[in-house]
Write a protein that binds this DNA or RNA. Structure first.
Length: 287
DNA sequence: AAGAGGCCCTGATAGC
DNA sequence: TGCTATCAGGGCCTCT
């Protein structure tokens, strides 16, 4: 589900609600997520206070007191929901919810706070949660991931050094989290549209001028997506139950057969499959 | 050793 | 209406 912008939105919507709050209790209904949830998770989280919330790549990081960190990855279909304690499984009191927004199935983890609960829901169970016990452990976990488009180390020289020597298709490079972290299937297609590069172009054939475009538009696209509250295709909502609207800005993603929106292009959006993922581009303006 | 594709899983939707 | 097939914001693992 979420790529960097969506996780960022979840982070932002959660910060206001849970900072400095104490987790009284955790109940896990299904431990079989992408990875089996550690059997000690409940007791290691119980009575811990949330001191901060951050995000790296597509991970939400919940900072607990005593230097522990709870990592949440949303996979394809994971979401977090805030709900009122008194009306546990019924309609919440919080005004921003409506009935449809509270899932009944696939609520795998519930964090109980004194006045509300936070629910991790994930129909496909491709997501996971992981408790890390120190700064060191967090650092070494995150070391596997490349810079995000907003980072200073995400610059022309870095991109060039990795792209020029690669036989990978450029779209697969953008999706490689070890190289760049945070971009997923939607934004990869969008970034390549703005950069005017065909998704199946081999890395070493990508020109310097095109690498500059990738640098520029990776930042642009993600920033704008965050500004618009992320993309809601089927089930993404922030933790307050609100949709994103960046899907209205899509130039190519999920627009197969539609007209290219580049002025005077008159081309149509084509869909191809690269490494089993749908990929969208305009044959006319992407070379 | 690098790169592509299979696969994990459930639900929504399209097509018959 | 009800079936079946296809496909979905990810990424680890296994082949070649």
């Amino acid at each position: 589900m979420p790529e960097l912008p969506e996780v960022e939105i979840v982070k932002q919507s959660l910060v206001k609600k849970v900072i400095n709050k104490k987790i009284n209790r955790v109940v896990i209904y299904n431990r079989n997520l992408r990875f089996k949830i550690d059997k000690n998770l409940e007791k290691n989280i119980k009575n811990k206070q949330i001191v901060d919330i951050s995000r790296k790549s597509k991970y939400l990081i919940i900072h607990l007191n005593e230097g522990k960190f709870l990592l949440i990855h949303f996979g394809m279909s994971g979401t977090l929901h805030l709900s009122n304690n008194e009306f546990s499984n019924k309609i919440t009191n919080l005004s921003f919810y409506n009935k449809q927004r509270l899932p009944k199935k696939h609520n795998h983890i519930v964090f109980f706070f004194s006045k509300f609960k936070l629910i991790y829901n994930d129909p496909r169970r491709f997501g996971f949660v992981k408790l890390l016990y120190s700064d060191q452990e967090l650092k070494s976990f995150l070391r596997k991931y490349g810079p995000e488009p907003m980072d200073v180390s995400f610059n022309f020289n870095y991109l060039k050094s990795k792209i020029k020597g690669s036989k990978k298709k450029i779209k697969n490079l953008l999706l490689d989290q070890k190289f760049i972290s945070g971009i997923g299937n939607i934004y990869a297609s969008e970034i390549l549209y703005y950069s005017k590069i065909r998704p199946n172009k081999i890395g070493r054939k990508v020109k310097n001028s095109e690498i500059k475009q990738i640098e520029k538009f990776s930042k642009h696209v993600l920033k704008k997506a965050i500004k618009k509250g992320g993309s809601t295709i089927r089930n993404f909502i922030n933790s307050e139950g609100l949709d994103g609207s960046y899907q209205k800005e899509f130039k190519v993603y999920d627009r197969e057969g539609k007209e290219c929106s580049t002025r005077k292009c008159n081309g149509f959006i084509k869909k191809i499959v690269i490494s089993n993922r749908s990929t969208f581009y305009c044959k006319n303006c992407q070379k």
